[in-house]
Write a protein that binds this DNA or RNA. Sequence first.
DNA 1: CGATAAGCGGACCGCCTGGTCAACTTGTTA
DNA 2: TAACAAGTTGACCAGGCGGTCCGCTTATCG
Lengths: 205, 205
Amino acid sequence: MTQPRPLRADAARNRRLLLAAAADEFAERGLDASVADIARRAGIGKGTVFRHFATKDDLLAAIVVDRIQALTDVGERLLDAADPGDALLEFLTAAAHQRQQRDLSFLQEAGDLSEEVTRLRTRMFHTVHRLVDRAREHGAIRADVTGADVILLMCAPNHVVSYVPDAPPDLWRRYLAIIFDGLRPQGAHPLPQPPPDSYGDPVGS
Amino acid sequence: MTQPRPLRADAARNRRLLLAAAADEFAERGLDASVADIARRAGIGKGTVFRHFATKDDLLAAIVVDRIQALTDVGERLLDAADPGDALLEFLTAAAHQRQQRDLSFLQEAGDLSEEVTRLRTRMFHTVHRLVDRAREHGAIRADVTGADVILLMCAPNHVVSYVPDAPPDLWRRYLAIIFDGLRPQGAHPLPQPPPDSYGDPVGS
DNA sequence: CGATAAGCGGACCGCCTGGTCAACTTGTTA
DNA sequence: TAACAAGTTGACCAGGCGGTCCGCTTATCG
């Protein structure tokens, strides 16, 4: 069902170099990183990039799929943690940690890259909803925030930090802590607007 | 000291159309909006754009200067409000409100556009620091957050909302409320990282 | 080893971008 | 109204982009 013939050894090596270089380049320069630069960084020709991935978006999708996959795994593993509040915080920490480089908006902006990305993202959103529901039932977060809220806020710590030049690598933890405090029930003020009704919601949930 | 000759009537009109079109276009498409599109939207020729502003960055700077100016005015007016906590919240509301369209990162990314932008931005940051200091002294926000923190978090509500397609125009208020709750002293957990030491800090303050 | 196809790479293409320019139009003023 | 400077414009340019292609290299395997 998958490829009948395995990659040639050098091709496999180049593919790894390419993915690593692309991840770095996207992380540093954002989505506008040029294919030529990525190829140069990987030490391969530009043509080789397009042999491995038909378009630049396909290359990006491959990286994004990887990240979403990893994050979903973390989330699902945390679903039966003892303390649901800690579990949610840990999940958000993992999410921000894997994105600690420049804000890529990996999970959000890359929405329409491919069917696979969409599918995996939906699955990840589903996991977040369950983590949030558990935390809410446990009284660890306020009653009026939803999974969609958390999904939207998930990227904020990285985004915030991206503005400060030469930021210490763990600065995002500070803003995650502030935002998470805003999600806690203690001292919560009523929210002025309803949550977005469908964003990030698994269909029918 | 300023221009000896006033603009011709049609030129002034075009300038206004241009600035309005550019603001809209930047708001909708972000910083990548093309000069040609802006000109088309304004109903003028592309050459005319460059007669009014030598470069695309100059055009952007003109808009940014305007926004920063307006925001600083709001902030300074709020400096002697009765309730410093409310004043800070109101300032953040004004900041998010003026940026309620697509996330432009006006204040942050546009850092090096011109000397004037840098100067005005520094002045605005100074105002924020004073608002935050007052709010903290008044016990309205937690002791461990700084002006730099608030400056960084200022854009987060807009950024967060920018991910949801067809968001209700006031949705950002919801996330501003959550983040502001995270800034309050009630139920605050200690922050894991020190604040950025210099970002947004007026020199020597 | 020798044959073969998988893999490689850089010249090349079309497109779009920010920016220039010289011919043309028009508001202003005496 | 006449004359001139201020303003307008779209064709044009160089540069960079994603993507293609074909002659060359090289890993693989009988």
